[in-house]
Write a protein that binds this DNA or RNA. Structure first.
Lengths: 257, 257
DNA sequence: TCTCAATACCAGTTATGACAAGATATATTT
DNA sequence: AAATATATCTTGTCATAACTGGTATTGAGA
C-alpha cells in the first residue's frame, strides 16, 4: 500500500470545480504517482476522507465517478481496487439486464403485463416438475432501458407458499432476488438461444415491425439438486440488445468441428 | 488422495473477488485437474485452510457454495466428497457443431469458401493483438447438417509458423483441433450474441431470403494468459439452429433486475 | 435547489476461538 | 471373540470482533 500522508495536495473550496471532481482527479494522480498497479487496493474510504479532508459523500461521489470511467472497481466488504483488464472481461454467467444497464449507464425499468397465479398447464408442469394444475406464478414484463422497450420477459415458477406476490411491485423488484430471498438456491441455468422473427404481439410490445429479427433466450433455472425452480424466456429486439458472456475451457476434448 | 502441497496457487488479496470465491474456484480447479473421481474425499478442512491460508469460515463458505452448485456434498464427521454423478458438466461450454449433429443424428459437413493467408487489416490486427500487415489466416466455411446449410463460419487467426495450412482439408478438419494441436491452449472465449437480419451474401450462402432472422455469434478465443488466439464469427440461420449452453452461478446472490 | 458535511446504521468479508456432534479406529473389558 | 469404552479423527454451529463498502437522514450554506 502506498499513498503517503503528505502527498496530498489540499483541495480548494473556492474553486468553481466541484469538490468531488477535484477529489477524483487527486485520486487519479495518486494512482499514477504512487504507481499503484492494476488490481491493487486503495486505502479504505475512512482513511482517504481524512487525508483529503472531505466528507464521505463527496469522496464516494468521486470514487463512483472513477468507477464510471473505468479507473476503479469496488468490492463490498473488501475495498476499492484499481481496475484491471481482467475486470473488463465478460462475465462468466450471462450478463443480467440490470448489469447491462449499469455498464451502459442506462436506467432499467419494467412494464408489468401480467403478474398472477394460475394452474399449471401440462407443459409448464412438466418443465417445473410439479403436478399439472398446481399453482404457478406467471410474470410477464416489458424491459426498458432509458424508457426504450428492449425485451419481453415471460417467466413462471411454482407458487411460493406464504408469500404474497401480489404485494410486490415488479416494476422495480428483481425476480432473481425474490427467488433467492424465498430460499431457493439458483445454481444453474440451462439455456437455449435462438433467432426468430417477431410476431404481432411481440412487435407491438417492443415497438418494432412484425418479422424483424428478435433474440429469444429460454432458461430453465435449477437449484443445486437439479430441481427446476423457474422458467424464464426473454425475447430481445435484435437491434437493441446483445448477449455477452464468456465461455471457459473450450479446448478440453471436444473439437468444435 | 491427491492435491499436493505445492499445487495450490496462492489466493491474492489484490483482487476485488472475495477470498471465498477464489477458494471455491481453486478447489474446483483442483478437482478437475487432479481428476478426483465422483465420490472421492477431499482433504479435511484443517488441511485445506492451512494450504489456502484462509480462515475456516471463509473455507466453509467456499465449500458450501460448491455444495450449492452441486459440485460437493458434505458428510458430518466424515468429510467433503465430490458429488456423485456430477449434475451434468459444470464447465460452461457451448455445445459444439459436431456435438449437436451427433445428438440429432445428423451428418455435419462444410463448404470451404476461403482458406488463405492475408496481411492483417487494422481491425484484425487490433483484435488479435498483432502488428498490422502480419500474416493472418482466414477461413470461411458454410456449415451443413445432412447437407442443409445451417451456418456461415468466418474465422481468422495469426498464421502459425511452420504449419502448412494449405495442405489441410477444412471440409472435414476441425479448426479448434488444429489450434490445439498447434500448441494453443484455448482457455476462454468472450462471446457476443445477437439477432440480425440476413444480408444478401448470407442469404445466398444459407439459402434463405434476405431479411430473415439469423443468429450471429462472435467469439474472441483466448489462451490461458488472455492473449487472443482466434476470432470466430458464426452466423446461423434462425430457424435452423439453437445455441445450447449451461450457466452456473458460483457463489452468486446477484440480482437479475 | 444543489453541494457538501456529519452521523448513524446496514451489509458483506475475514479472522479467531470454543464447543457440539457424527464417524471411526483402537484399546479395554467382559 | 464380542461388546464396550475411549481417544481422535471429522464436520457443524455459535459467538465475537474487526475491518470493509453501501445507504439513508439530517442539516448547513451558497
Amino acid at each position: 500500500m502506498v499513498m503517503k500522508d503528505g502527498a496530498v495536495a489540499p483541495l480548494q473550496s473556492d474553486s468553481p470545480e466541484p469538490l468531488w471532481q477535484q477529489a477524483a482527479r487527486a485520486i487519479t494522480r495518486e494512482i499514477a504517482a504512487a504507481k499503484l498497479s492494476s488490481g491493487s487496493r486503495l486505502p479504505p474510504e475512512r482513511d482517504l476522507l481524512t487525508r483529503l479532508s472531505i466528507s464521505r459523500v463527496t469522496l464516494r461521489k468521486a470514487l463512483h465517478s472513477l468507477v464510471n470511467s473505468g479507473v476503479l472497481v469496488s468490492s463490498h466488504g473488501r475495498g476499492w481496487y484499481v481496475a484491471t483488464e481482467a475486470h473488463q472481461e465478460f462475465p462468466q454467467t450471462l450478463e443480467s439486464f440490470s448489469e447491462t444497464a449499469a455498464r451502459l449507464g442506462l436506467v432499467p425499468s419494467s412494464d408489468v403485463l401480467r403478474a398472477q397465479e394460475a394452474p399449471a398447464t401440462l407443459d409448464e408442469a412438466e418443465e417445473l416438475s410439479v403436478a399439472p394444475g398446481s399453482p404457478v406464478f406467471h410474470l410477464e414484463r416489458i424491459r426498458r432501458l432509458d424508457g426504450v422497450p428492449v425485451a419481453v420477459d415471460i417467466s413462471y415458477f411454482s407458487a411460493i407458499r406464504g408469500l404474497d406476490v401480489s404485494a410486490i411491485d415488479f416494476k422495480t423488484a428483481s425476480l432473481f432476488r425474490l427467488l433467492i430471498d424465498a430460499g431457493f438456491d439458483l445454481a444453474r441455468a440451462d439455456s437455449t438461444i435462438e433467432a426468430r422473427a417477431a410476431d404481432f404481439t411481440l412487435a407491438r410490445h417492443l415497438g418494432i415491425e412484425v418479422g424483424m429479427p428478435v433474440l429469444a433466450m429460454w432458461q430453465l433455472i435449477e437449484d443445486g439438486n437439479g430441481r427446476p425452480v423457474c422458467s424464464s424466456t426473454i425475447t430481445y429486439a435484435g437491434d437493441r440488445y446483445r448477449l455477452r458472456t464468456s465461455f471457459s475451457r473450450i479446448g478440453k476434448n471436444t473439437a468444435q468441428g
